[in-house]
Nucleic acid binder design. Sequence first.
DNA 1: ATGGTAGTAGAACTA
Length: 261
Amino acid sequence: MALFRIATFNVNSIRSRMPALMRWLNDNRVNLLCLQETKVQDAEFDPSPFHERGYSIVFRGQKATAGVAIASLEPLEDVRIGFGDGEDPDDGPRLIRGRLGDLLVINTYVPQGKSLEHPDYAYKLRFFRRIRALLERESSPGDPVLWVGDLNVAPTDIDVTHPENKRDHVCFHEDVKRAFEEVRQWGLVDVFRKHRPGEGEFSFFDYRVKDSLARNIGWRIDHILATKSLADASLDSWVDRLPRSWEKPSDHTPVVAVFDR
DNA sequence: ATGGTAGTAGAACTA
């Protein structure tokens, strides 16, 4: 039996977060670490802290916003950046994927959307449709596939603190939940929920909400989904709340899953 | 928590 560990973590600037990120990685030698909101151009991305710890790393970023990366103990194969579907924008800073043998991993930073009326929200809904099309084009529900990242959607009422006053939020509106659900229905299982069905499980704690971590006021918007055969091989999944309590934390905290494969 | 805070900026904007 070989354990395979994966984590997703929106770091909210990898340059600001490098000390905390390396502290976490020292203690959590996950096989795959999918990062979002690196907020750094590729020329200024410093891979050496990952290399020093035995990780290869692939990344695509831009100035100030977005940016994704995947660190891997075994080098990723067939790395692709962006959708590659001919649509505009290709959106490399929000989607990076690669393979480890037969396993396909897709790491996304889904656009937040700003407001229901904003063009970014329509783009967000289209982003989910493009994910579904990518899955249909590149894989099959019978294959081992992981879709992870900051998906900027809380799928159900127990994934936010006060659902009743968030019906018009871009991460909780019925339309965005449906858009996410239509990707999931291609053939993905919410690995975290398989193991943690209860309420009060969050991966994002707004800086602006006083004592959000201690009061457990947050959102579950960072996700690990897997095709059924892979999800069946999962042993556990959890939110690691510890890094959110450290100095200079990200507003998100890692979500981890362990597989036997 | 329709106010807050952190990050990138180097003044507002994004989350």
